[in-house]
């Protein structure tokens, strides 16, 4: 593959995958290999977060359509789908933040116990990556309105790969953090 931007992002997400694997290992370790009981899981609302997950997955879908439109030259369609992607991503973040606030009100914080620590660290780093992705998407979106349109075309492959990675990581995080306590 000679598109060095896409290649760079692929290697970057491979590297970040190791980072998230490490955080997930910490979470799974505390959950399964220690005698501690999980106090956070009982307070998690998997249904609510599941709905917000759908928003994130939806944003990946709209991004796919947006990229296709951009490659075909339909700039209006591209702008529409890009705006949708950013919106859906932002909705997901709002969901995360309100969930954090809810947990905080129940006195579940980073330092509650080992599950509080690992939950907030894992989901927090994921949220940070989502925010960075939203910023990147917004830059491409904004630039597409100016005379620097070719920049959008040059950057869409890399940002697209990154955003799908963020989505896939969330699927894994959602499974380990929200689904496994229910099984």
């Amino acid at each position: 593959m000679k598109d060095k931007g896409k290649l760079l992002v692929l290697f970057l997400i491979a590297s970040e995958a190791f980072f998230f694997i490490a955080l997930i290992i910490a979470y799974v370790y505390y959950r399964n290999f220690t005698n501690a009981t999980d106090t956070v899981a009982a307070n998690l609302d998997a249904m609510r977060t599941g709905i917000f997950t759908l928003f994130l997955v939806g944003s990946s879908v709209t991004l796919i359509f947006g990229k296709r439109a951009l490659k075909k030259g339909n700039n209006q369609t591209f702008k529409l789908f890009m705006a949708l992607t950013i919106l859906l991503g932002a909705v997901f973040m709002v969901g995360q933040i309100t969930e954090y606030i809810g947990l905080y009100h129940k006195q579940i914080t980073l330092n509650k116990d080992v599950f509080g620590s690992s939950f907030f660290t894992l989901t927090g780093f994921h949220g940070l990556h989502v925010i960075l992705g939203i910023i990147a998407l917004s830059i491409l979106f904004g630039v597409s309105f100016t005379k620097m349109k070719p920049v959008t075309l040059a950057g869409i492959e890399g940002v697209d790969t990154y955003w799908h990675f963020v989505d896939v990581v969330w699927i894994f995080v959602f499974y380990f953090v929200y689904i496994t306590p229910l099984l």
């Binding site: 491979a14 190791f18 980073l110």
Partner: peptide
Amino acid sequence: LAAFPLLNAGLFMMLIDRQFDAHF
């Protein structure tokens, strides 16, 4: 690319331990 993320994960966890009283 494969090794430094593992270090970073550990470093961040310990930083959170020290700064935010976490329990890693």
